[in-house]
């Protein structure tokens, strides 16, 4: 038992994964579907090897990751400062909050026709869609986090004569980091969801395109390779975000 406890964060997920693969294989065997309709793990693994060997998988993965990264960074670079302004200024909030709330529920996918018209075919429309899907939740989470700061900290700042820069750098930014990190974790996951959908329409590369293209070629094993890689990268992104973004003072 002790050994299991010690290694549980590695061991237990491995056990579940093995069980999931066994279940998958069992369903394939007993479902009666052909390998073309529902390929089993071994076939998908072969497909994975093929796609890795000829370099297509790497190319598509890099294309998707590039779009998510650029779109996400743009959303962070714009969203956090604007969120801070909205959180600090009542006037700015009253002017722009309804606009944010109006644009936020419009699915990024609804922007696809306009995005293609404005940005053409290629990386840019996909980047724009990912930016949209991350931007509004980041701006909102940041503004709420600023408004949630304990007013005592602002009194301390007044008492010790903070100027405006110090209020932002020594008070607001450190105070909102825990909330903002949670928002970033959620929004990069959404961005990763959206990139696949965007790539099915607007571009000729990326994991979404790989899935669509394989479907057209009736290669369901490649389709499943694409799905597995997407899930696996999503998992990795979350682990990385968790690892690197722990504020040292924890939640308070």
């Amino acid at each position: 038992m002790k050994w299991i406890n010690k290694n549980s964060s590695f061991l237990l997920p491995t056990v579940t994964t093995i069980i999931a693969f066994a279940l998958w294989e069992a369903i394939v065997r007993f479902s009666g579907w052909s390998n073309q309709v529902f390929p089993g793990p071994s076939l998908v693994f072969d497909g994975l090897i093929e796609l890795v060997a000829d370099g297509t998988l790497f190319k598509h993965t890099v294309a998707s990751l590039y779009r998510v990264t650029v779109g996400f960074y743009l959303a962070v670079l714009l969203g956090i400062p604007l969120g801070i302004i909205l959180g600090m200024s009542r006037i700015a909030n009253e002017m722009f909050n309804p606009m944010v709330q109006f644009l936020r529920p419009i699915s990024p996918l609804a922007w696809i026709p306009l995005a293609m018209l404005w940005f053409g075919i290629g990386d840019n429309p996909a980047i724009f869609l990912i930016f949209l899907s991350c931007f509004f939740s980041i701006i909102m989470a940041t503004a709420i986090a600023v408004r949630r700061i304990n007013p005592i900290y602002f009194q301390v700042a007044t008492n010790f004569n903070f100027n405006r820069t110090e209020i932002i750098s020594k008070l607001i930014i450190p105070a909102i980091i825990p909330d903002v990190i949670t928002a970033l974790r959620l929004s990069i996951a959404v961005g990763w969801l959206v990139v696949v959908a965007a790539e099915m329409i607007a571009v000729q590369s990326g994991l979404g395109y790989l899935i669509l293209d394989s479907r057209n070629a009736l290669r369901m094993d490649y389709v499943m390779v694409g799905m597995i890689v997407i899930g696996w990268i999503g998992l990795c992104i979350d682990i990385i975000m968790q690892k690197f973004c722990k504020p040292k003072w924890g939640a308070y």
Partner: peptide, 20 residues
Amino acid sequence: KHASSNHIFVFQQNGLLPWM
């Protein structure tokens, strides 16, 4: 007219900035 950095206030709780 306003708080002075010469007159310091000790709060009931949470007066320390927790990230410092």
